[in-house]
Design a binder for these strands. Structure first.
Lengths: 209, 209
DNA sequence: CGCTGTAGGCGTGCGGTGTACGCTTACGAC
DNA sequence: GTCGTAAGCGTACACCGCACGCCTACAGCG
């Protein structure tokens, strides 16, 4: 009976995401989001109990569009597609990567995605503890790659520094870093995933044979 | 000729680490470290130009003790040992995990470690781009596993929530989460690494054959 | 011994953060 | 038209990193 809400949770998330995309994750603050929405800072707390919860809404918004239906193909193709879709969704907003780490376990979208991955793994013959470890390994690769790519891409400054390291002390590192500068992020991620899947396939074969 | 320094960089790092271990990473502040050292907040800036640099010192201290000499054995055994040593060093101070992510590329200890890993990979026959991708995959697994373990261990609350999910909507997730609660973190990490190494081995064989 | 210059240590203050609390005000139902 | 509820906001507090300037302990020198 009192006045109706003028904003939805998704409006909040969109405003926060706009701040992040424009000014970076460090610029995300309750005040900044309030300005973005044209309202007072404390008004946000009518919709959200916490900065924490607002961050969760942002993550949810980023991940909400991910299609969790496995495409036709082998189980490795299906896993690859599902993992690549998450990566693609996150890469559109690189600055939210740290948030996806923190709020990983509260995202409904990610729960649905995990269920889909588990479905593929189960269909491939992974059961019990093997399935737990397979999921965890895939998740580890996804998280690790996103993190590495975000705060130290192969083409970035860190690699440049390594490439210029004294060759007598770090011969391999210097050479490898020079090589690394020419590896595009997509290939890095994809090949790493392929290695992991090859390993999982041998484990599966061990189990069956 | 003026009065001598009364603190070393390592003293600062030790004090900061004490704060982190006692009160958590969120409690790390220049003021808290100063209190820990029994001095004024601004005195810290005689030793350190920045909070950023102080964090770097903490990471360096945590990683400094890691032995980078590969043990005898196969190349996979050597890689496993080196990776496990970093994991062991970081696990002593779980709260610094996020810092190790951020300051990864500025740590001298980690550079030496990377050089050692590359030495093992080179000895095993990895060259050029293959070596880049192998290193990156290993680093991805290390980072991802540390991150996952830190903010969502299999035995933690998140897994418990998943285990209690509605079975009609998330049948596999609920079942897998129940199974996951009994997987110790060490096994999770070790098996994931084993899978990755199995994959790398097949890639190496492909290259040779 | 006393002087002197360097650099260690510290106090204050500024602009930022998240958010607790209480007020005003718009609105739907009677 | 009146009333109750909840939306929206202003103020205030405790915390943060850090710029700036002051005071002072000390090593080297005459």
């Amino acid at each position: 009976m009192p006045r109706p809400r003028s904003l939805s949770h998704d409006d909040l998330a969109a405003a926060a995401l706009a701040v992040i995309d424009r000014d970076g994750l460090a610029a995300l603050s309750m005040r900044a989001v309030a300005v973005e929405l044209g309202m007072g800072t404390m008004s946000l707390y009518r919709y959200v109990s916490d900065r924490e919860q607002l961050e969760g809404l942002v993550v949810e918004r980023v991940l909400a569009g991910v299609d969790v239906s496995p495409p036709p193909g082998s189980w490795t193709d299906q896993v690859t597609a599902l993992v690549e879709r998450v990566r693609a969704a996150v890469r559109v907003h690189p600055e939210v990567v740290p948030l996806t780490m923190t709020h990983r376990h509260t995202s409904a979208a990610l729960l649905r995605w995990t269920e889909a991955i588990l479905g593929v793994l189960a269909g491939a013959g992974f059961t019990g503890r093997r399935r737990v470890l397979a999921l965890r390994a895939l998740l580890g690769h996804l998280v690790g790659s996103l993190q590495l790519e975000h705060l130290g891409p192969l083409s970035g400054a860190g690699t440049g520094i390594m490439a210029g390291l004294p060759r007598e002390e770090f011969p391999l590192l210097a050479e490898t870093a020079r090589e690394a500068r020419e590896v595009p992020p997509g290939e890095e991620f994809g090949q790493g995933l392929a290695v992991l899947l090859a390993g999982l396939r041998t484990f599966l074969a061990m189990d069956e044979g």
